[in-house]
Design a protein around this nucleic acid. Sequence first.
DNA 1: CGTGGCTTGAAACCCGTTCTCAACTCCGGT
DNA 2: ACCGGAGTTGAGAACGGGTTTCAAGCCACG
Lengths: 169, 169
Amino acid sequence: MTSPPPKLDAGELMERFRSYMRDHNLPLTHQREAIASALFYSEEHLSVEDIEAILRDNHVHVGKATVYRTMDLLVRAGLIDEHDFGEGFKRFEPRSARNHHEHLICLACGKVVEFTSERIERMKALIADEHGFRHHHHRLDIYGVCTECQDRSAGTPDRKLDRSGRGIR
Amino acid sequence: MTSPPPKLDAGELMERFRSYMRDHNLPLTHQREAIASALFYSEEHLSVEDIEAILRDNHVHVGKATVYRTMDLLVRAGLIDEHDFGEGFKRFEPRSARNHHEHLICLACGKVVEFTSERIERMKALIADEHGFRHHHHRLDIYGVCTECQDRSAGTPDRKLDRSGRGIR
DNA sequence: CGTGGCTTGAAACCCGTTCTCAACTCCGGT
DNA sequence: ACCGGAGTTGAGAACGGGTTTCAAGCCACG
């Protein structure tokens, strides 16, 4: 880690967020701006708890009801995506200009690697078609153990995988 | 519905269940047998509530704590699979002799269609490999609208999709 | 700057799931 | 058959993420 993180197109997302609010006659409150920027300027898959922590660190107090309500708003606005990695709660990530992507999730350390596959995109449509479904969206999550964790556990062989995948980031 | 449902290999699963209990020195209680058979003889993706209902209909009373504990047991025994379709609760299905399969989920009526794809099986391994992951398991769920529901809503166009997918069966 | 409608926050609530603990059951040994 | 003790059960309490409630507050348009 030598250079500051690239930050995707957070600024553009903020702009789109403000436009959306304006276009829908929704008040642009401080809370909403704080939550949106916390999300847009992060490259992680954030849980609501993570967001509350970021806001707390920035000395901004926002009630959790507001955080949840704003998540809802941002999802509807198409600015963030909601993910469920089976941890018992949701995670959110900014929807960048990038295409839809899938997730590779490390069961040991929780690292999430994103990838895309043109072939999968084509296949999902094909399969939906085959069964008469009008395709809406899909989710492909591959769970496994990343290189680092394989190496690390070489000494302590056969470390039991966390069944629930807790600790995912 | 003219013929009785095919019932997969429920009998065999029951046998495997009993062996597992024996081999692990775990008492084979009436409750556990009732829960296991409720699951094994069903072809649906059952929620805990569904299971409680089946048991109730059969005039077998089992506390919900026991149902949850037995689900855990059966998952660990590798006899059932756990699924999360994003409804806010888990569903379970017997792990038959069949291969791993994916799900097509109707957002309107909740119908779940299973399918397999050799190509996807190959691809998931390839992709995990590419990223240095040791593949453990994966999940591919495609959400859309089935033929029947497309037809049904032809009169009431653009009916909003249920965001949460509630009502999945 | 006033006013009306939308938003906010604290706390109550909801609901799926897990925990607690006293009573009970299974089952191998006798 | 019976005993004993480990393991299981069930009712209810507890837990935790998420949603609702409602009085108070803020935003933005005029």
